[in-house]
Every structure is written in C-alpha cells, then in structure tokens.
Simulated assay, not measured.
Amino acid sequence: MTLQSAYDEITLALGAHPVRLRPSLRTASQFVREEGFTDLPRRIADFHLGTIRDLISVAATDRQEASAFLDQIDATPLKIVADAVTAPMLALVAGFVPASDKEDTKPAKTGNSMPWPAVYKELYRKATGWLGWTPEQAWNATPTEINEAFAGHIEQLKAIHGSSDDNQPKHDPRQEVSPGEVKAGLAQLRRHTQKAAS
C-alpha cells in the first residue's frame, strides 16, 4: 500500500494488482451525486464493501487496473483487504474537499453552507469560465488544484490591475480630529465667510 498526499493520486496495492485512484472533480461530483457525502467517511471506516468497490470503480485512473484490483478483492480475505484499503480510501475522500489556503488568515464567511453538488458545480465554472480550462482539464483536476489555480489567477489580476484594498487609506482621517476641533474649525469657517461677505 502506498499512501500519498490526499490531493494527488493514491495507489492501492493488493497482491500483484495495484490501482491508481485520483480525487478528481469528476470523481468527487459523480460519487457524491450517486452516494452522498455525509456518511461516506463512516461507510469507508466501517468497511462497507459496496461503497469501497464503487469508489474504486469511479476514482480509478485506469479501468483495467480497477477491474483487476476488484477481482483481487474477491480472492482475498476481507480483513486483509480492509487493512490495505481503509486508510488510503479515507485519504482519497479527503481529497474531495478543497483544501483551504493555509496562509489565509481571514475569518471564514458565515452564512448558509452549499450542498456538495453546488460546490463542485462552482469549481467547474471557475475552472472553465475564469481559468479557461477545457471541460476535460476541469473534470480531471482535483478540487484543491482548481481552488489553488483560481487563487493564483485572482492574485495575478490584483498584481496587474490593483485591488480595491490598495485604494483604501490605511487609517480613517476622521479619527484624527476630535469633535471639539471640528466645532472650532466650523466656527472659524463661519467667521471667515462673514468677513468675506461684509
């Protein structure tokens, strides 16, 4: 068993038949649409064999590898299969969730949460609309890859065109003047205006 980053390909090995799995946008959206996401980690941890088999079928980068691996599952004691695939499958499912920018210190926005199909639809729109990727490139990228590419694109646009944050003063000049100073200034302005009028 080889376990890589949750946002890369993951290789499952069982006997002589490894299979490479990828948490692509296509895999995430198809599996979540068909199986749901809420109970998915629990079903994997509980070694729900139907869920495991479906996920391998959907996430495999090579259908022949997937078929050979699934045949190997049928010929192997389930305890051995569970020990070999549970942790990597949980890592694969973690890849369905776009990773947040670790350097982002802004507080999370509050409000209504989006259902997972809507999240994936939005990622697809960003990839094809904003980034100009082909549909195939968008479907094959992971949710984190799309998020990171989009964040990079926004940074590039800000660097080229500036941002509204750049135009804001670092402090509010109104905070430097006390109400008494404002009254005194207005009184002086009235006196000046009255002298000019007479």
Rank of each mutant, 00 (worst) to 15 (best):
Thr144Pro: 09
Asp166Ala: 15
Ile56Met: 13
Gly15Cys: 11
Arg125His: 09
Lys102Phe: 10
Pro173Val: 06
Pro135Leu: 07
Ala151Ser: 08
Leu78His: 02
Ile73Pro: 00
Ala151His: 02
Arg42Gly: 15
Leu78Cys: 07
Glu155Met: 11
Ala138Gly: 02
Pro173Gln: 04
Glu176Arg: 05
Asp39Phe: 09
Thr27Gln: 06
Gly15Pro: 05
Lys79Tyr: 04
Ala196Lys: 09
Gln30Gly: 06
Glu136His: 04
Arg190Ser: 11
Pro173Gly: 04
His17Ser: 14
Arg190Phe: 13
Ala28Thr: 03
Val32Pro: 05
Val32Ile: 15
Arg43Asn: 11
Glu9Val: 10
Leu90Trp: 09
Val58Phe: 11
Glu65Val: 02
Ile44Glu: 05
Trp139Val: 10
Ser178Asn: 02
Val85Tyr: 00
Ala99Gly: 10
Thr144Ala: 14
Leu25Ile: 11
Leu14Glu: 02
Lys79Val: 15
Leu25Asn: 00
Glu148Lys: 01
Ala187His: 03
Arg125Tyr: 10
Pro77Leu: 11
Thr61Gln: 09
Lys106Ser: 13
Arg43Leu: 14
Ile56Lys: 01
Pro115His: 09
Gly185Val: 12
Trp130Ala: 13
Ile154Glu: 07
Leu189Glu: 11
Gln188Ala: 15
Thr2Cys: 03
Leu78Asn: 07
Gln64Ala: 10
Ile160Phe: 03
Gln64Trp: 10
Gln168Tyr: 04
Pro179Asn: 05
Met114Phe: 12
His192Leu: 15
Ala149Tyr: 06
Thr2Ile: 15
Leu70Tyr: 05
Asp172Cys: 12
Ser67Pro: 00
Thr51Ile: 13
Gln168Thr: 12
Asp83Pro: 00
Arg43Val: 03
Leu55Lys: 00
Pro41Cys: 10
Pro18Lys: 01
Arg33Ala: 09
Phe47Asp: 04
Lys109Gln: 13
Met1Trp: 02
Glu136Phe: 07
Pro41Glu: 07
Ala138Phe: 11
Asp166Gln: 09
Ala28His: 03
Phe150Asp: 05
Gln137Ser: 07
Ala75Ile: 05
Ala75Tyr: 06
Lys195Glu: 14
His192Trp: 12
Ile146His: 03
His192Arg: 11
Ala138Trp: 10
Pro169Glu: 05
Ser67Gln: 11
Thr128Glu: 14
Ser24Val: 14
Ala138His: 04
Gln64Phe: 14
Leu123Asn: 03
Trp116Gly: 00
Pro173Met: 08
Gln4Met: 10
Glu34Thr: 08
Phe47His: 06
Thr193Cys: 08
Ser164Gln: 10
Thr193Asp: 11
Leu21Asp: 09
Thr27Ile: 07
Val93Trp: 03
Ile10Cys: 09
His153Lys: 09
Glu176Val: 01
Gln30Ser: 14
Ala75Trp: 05
Asp166Gly: 02
Pro18Glu: 07
Gln156Val: 01
Tyr124Glu: 08
Pro41Arg: 00
Ser67Ile: 11
Ser113Leu: 10
Glu145Leu: 05
Ser164Asn: 08
Pro169Val: 03
Thr193Gln: 14
Pro115Phe: 07
Thr2Asp: 08
Val93Leu: 12
Ala28Ile: 08
Thr110Lys: 13
Ala66Gln: 01
Trp139Asn: 06
Arg22Phe: 15
Leu189Met: 13
Ser100Ile: 11
Ala6Val: 00
Ile10Val: 15
Asn112His: 07
Gly152Ala: 14
Ser198Cys: 04
Asp166Glu: 14
Ile44Arg: 00
Arg125Thr: 05
Asp165Gln: 12
Asn167Lys: 07
Gln175Gly: 13
Gly111Tyr: 08
